[in-house]
């Protein structure tokens, strides 16, 4: 039998929040909310904040972006079944004025066969015709990053776009991961 074709993508548009994050659109409708954080404060592992801004080719923040993330737990294990403290999947939206987004999670461990620890990102917004896939790796995992087959297959300047940088705020680790859609320092996006 001939294969069917995948349903073609269309942009999520500027009002994606209504469907996927109604509270951000400005109303409350469902008893259960999906997202935002991949892990609760009870989850085992090092608790971290990941934050950044998605920038467009004009250097302006993308203020209507929606991001989903997918990651392993601290032991490098992916959880497909719901867990009270760790789901591994999150859904966050940017601030409508600044474009800043942030989520709390635990730092993922290295999963067997999956290279250096990382968080997968899927990015949709007005003007994005097909959701963009990228990954955030960690700058304090230099040894693991140096052996990662995905990172080592690309030039240095492009690899740097996938490395989140660690700092401390109020004693808590914060990773900064800015995403540039276009132009100088354009983030590497994947065909997964």
């Amino acid at each position: 039998m001939a294969k069917l074709k995948e349903t073609p993508s269309q942009t999520a548009g500027p009002y994606v929040h209504i469907g996927l994050a109604p509270a951000a659109a400005g109303f409350d409708i469902f008893d259960t909310t999906l997202g935002p954080d991949p892990a609760t404060p009870d989850a085992a592992g090092e608790h971290i904040t990941v934050e950044g801004v998605v920038w467009d080719g004009n250097g302006d923040p993308v203020t209507d972006v929606l991001i989903e993330v997918w990651q392993a737990d601290a032991e490098g294990r992916y959880h497909t079944s719901p867990s009270n403290s760790f789901r591994g999947w999150g859904r966050v939206v940017s601030d409508f004025d600044s474009g800043a987004w942030t989520f709390d999670t635990i730092k993922p461990g290295a999963a067997p066969g999956e290279g250096a620890p990382h968080i997968a990102f899927w990015i949709v917004a007005r003007g994005i015709n097909l959701g963009l896939n990228t990954r955030a790796y960690f700058d304090d995992e230099a040894a693991a990053n140096a052996g990662d087959p995905v990172l080592t297959a690309m030039p240095d300047d492009r690899r740097q776009t996938l490395i989140a940088t660690r700092s401390e705020r109020d004693g808590k680790p914060v990773y900064r991961f800015d995403i540039r859609l276009q132009g100088p320092g354009e983030t590497v996006f994947f065909d997964v």
Binding site: G127, I128, Q182, D191
Partner: peptide, 16 residues
């Protein structure tokens, strides 16, 4: 579709 002009990556997607 004007919104795509500044939001479209210039590089090809990297196969993963």
């Amino acid at each position: 579709y004007r919104s795509s002009r500044a939001r479209a990556p210039g590089h090809k997607l990297l196969s993963l």
